[in-house]
């Protein structure tokens, strides 16, 4: 405790920044854990649900239970797109083939857009973890260097260079590096963990998109 309190202003500022990084990165870790855990859980359940139903509108009714999954979002977007399409084609007698081709094209676009936005949602804040992981040790190191500089300056003014005089200053300074590492390590671990999980989810989203496209294609060929 006194190590921190006795430090100089610059070291204190550094410690403050590091504490800020640590607090925020831990908040992000909690947040991401929550989001990704839910997303994984809901995705799994949604896929079960999806394959157990034959009709889109039936699926559309049950979406609310799986709202955390990105797949749900993909399906919902596609469903909305299709519904809009139907409303339009009911109104006017258009060329079916053209319409069909347009439909597939639009669904594909919707899927791409949704996939992108969902990945973004999942990856939100992760960059902060990366930054913390890489920058915090350096900030801590800076604090240490500064602290040691200060300590040596103090030795210069006090004129005594015995270990008893030098050691407290250096140990104070080293606190900064320690805190930097304490902030950085969970951030790096969390970052890798989440990136891995998000890759899995993105893969699932890609697969699901292909499935959806196939289904839509089959649907349109069945209609005509």
């Amino acid at each position: 405790m006194e190590l921190v309190l006795n430090a100089g202003p610059v070291v204190k500022l550094v410690l403050l920044i590091l504490v800020y990084f640590s607090v925020v990165s831990w908040a992000i870790i909690f947040y991401k854990q929550l989001v990704i855990f839910r997303a994984m859980r809901d995705s799994e359940r949604f896929l079960d649900f999806f394959w157990s139903k034959k009709r889109f509108d039936a699926i559309g009714q049950g979406l609310d239970h799986y709202r955390h999954s990105p797949l749900t979002v993909l399906f919902r977007e596609v469903y909305r797109e299709l519904a809009q399409n139907r409303r339009q084609t009911e109104g006017q007698e258009a060329d079916n083939l053209v319409a069909d081709l347009g439909e597939q094209e639009r669904v594909a676009r919707v899927l791409r857009r949704s996939t992108t936005s969902e990945s973004h949602r999942l990856e939100k804040y992760l960059s902060f973890l990366a930054t913390t992981g890489s920058a915090a040790p350096f900030i801590g190191l800076f604090g240490t260097v500064w602290g040691i500089m200060d300590a040596f300056h103090g030795i210069g003014t006090s004129g005594s260079a015995s270990l008893a005089v030098v050691a407290p200053g250096i140990s104070e300074a080293l606190v900064a590096t320690a805190i930097g590492l304490v902030a950085a390590i969970p951030a790096v671990i969390g970052y890798n963990h989440f990136v891995n999980k998000i890759n899995v989810l993105t893969g699932e989203m890609d697969n699901f998109s292909q499935e959806m496209l196939n289904i839509v294609q089959r649907m349109s060929s069945r209609v005509h």
Binding site: V4, L5, K12, L16, V19, Y20, V23
Partner: peptide
């Protein structure tokens, strides 16, 4: 919040 946190040790000093 953070300012309050940092003010704490200063006032102790």
């Amino acid at each position: 919040l953070l300012v309050a946190c940092c003010a704490l040790p200063w006032s102790v000093r």
